[in-house]
Design a protein around this nucleic acid. Structure first.
Lengths: 209, 209
DNA sequence: TGTACATCAGTGAACGCGCGTTCACTGATGTAC
DNA sequence: TGTACATCAGTGAACGCGCGTTCACTGATGTAC
């Protein structure tokens, strides 16, 4: 049994990781405002002080969760969009695969998107926090834009707006729709969303040559 | 001077109207969570008790603001989309006029859309409140869908998804983008948004013939 | 038109409560010799 | 390998504060006669 003796650095890293994971779950469960540091600390098996020993406060903790999530999402999108066969052949198939990927992520974690909305409006009110969020988000958008550019080249198409904006719009459509679903579960089902996103991407794309 | 003597009913109606107007301004200014009933009451020239004499509480007051706003927006969209000339001629021109209308509303009241997002995620956590919000929102969506249907007929097109969902998606794209703008003012400018929304609507439309 | 009582919109103060943050402290890890 | 002191991650309790909601009260409007 006995937990292996850890160095201070290792044990702190571990605490930090566990706090982020717990925070993620609690934020999802309660939303940004209603999630309390008390519950997060308890969920991770610590006390609130541990949070302050590892993070500057609630906002900083959330940003850590966000950063982690964006890394994971970037990887997952890369796997999907750079897939060497199937999906990659027909651009329309790709559009729909992206829509389904998002819907699937939503099915697993329906609270995620509105959580980001809540934090964003909160962060927008504090210039310093807002700048930190902007930087984190920009890294994510840039990574997705990179993938979009690869797809453009491979399929011989060009979007009428910069790749970063294609990425932003895709996320925006999804984020907006999750708010609808939150309030009315019967609104636009998966097929309809697939159609919407495909329409958006198809409408923006033009063949090159 | 002396304010004309009002009947109880008239004076109550007036208080209610003024509270809604004040609430609207304060909610815009502070966001749903940070807006306090104290500030709202004061802005209207009353005390908090007046709020409770006219509304069941903060949530109820917000719903009243929302209802009012949706009525106004519905009228404005009707004016735009049923316009007998110019815009109405070419469907692409119409798409872009709608985008510009939204951008213009955003320029005047940038906080509105994220305010709705915040309230929605808040309301989603309380079944009763959520149902009230759903009903209010449904009326608005249905009214917009009605306008979309008129446009479909006039221009001899059909959307690949129900008109209600075209409406929902349009709002969703806008709502999502306002979150981006909140955090990064330099993200997708008006022209890019116009392109996005036009792409979405164009991509969804099919000629009937 | 006038009087006496009833109603009730809005007042103002108090109540509760939750939560983010701070801080003195503890005990296990790290370091110097 | 051992000892003495230094460091610091995490504890636990207290602090402040704001805010939504409640409630006894007041004074102007409404009603009955």
């Amino acid at each position: 049994m006995a937990t292996a003796r850890l160095t201070r650095t290792d044990s702190k890293t571990r605490t930090r990781t566990e706090l982020i994971a717990a925070a993620r779950r609690v934020f999802m469960r309660r939303g940004f405002h209603a999630a309390s540091l008390e519950e997060i600390a308890e969920e991770a098996g610590f006390t609130k002080g541990a949070v302050y020993s590892n993070f500057a406060g609630k906002d900083d903790l959330f940003l850590a969760v966000l950063d982690e999530q964006y890394s994971q999402r970037t990887e997952a999108y890369a796997k999907l969009m750079l897939a060497p066969e199937d999906i990659a052949e027909d651009i329309e198939v790709m559009f729909r695969a992206i829509a389904r990927f998002m819907l699937d992520a939503y099915a697993r974690e329906p609270a995620w998107w509105s959580l980001v909305s809540d934090f964003s409006t909160h962060a927008a009110r504090d210039p310093e926090l807002r700048e930190r969020l902007r930087a984190t988000r920009e890294r994510f958008i840039a990574a997705i834009a990179q993938l979009i550019t690869s797809v453009e080249e491979r399929h011989g198409i060009r979007y009428r707006v910069p790749a970063t904006e294609v990425a932003r719009g895709t996320g925006a459509l999804m984020r907006g729709m999750t708010v609808e679903w939150l309030i009315d579960g019967s609104a636009a089902n998966g097929e309809v969303f697939e159609e919407m996103l495909a329409a958006y991407l198809r409408g923006l794309a033009e063949p090159t040559h």
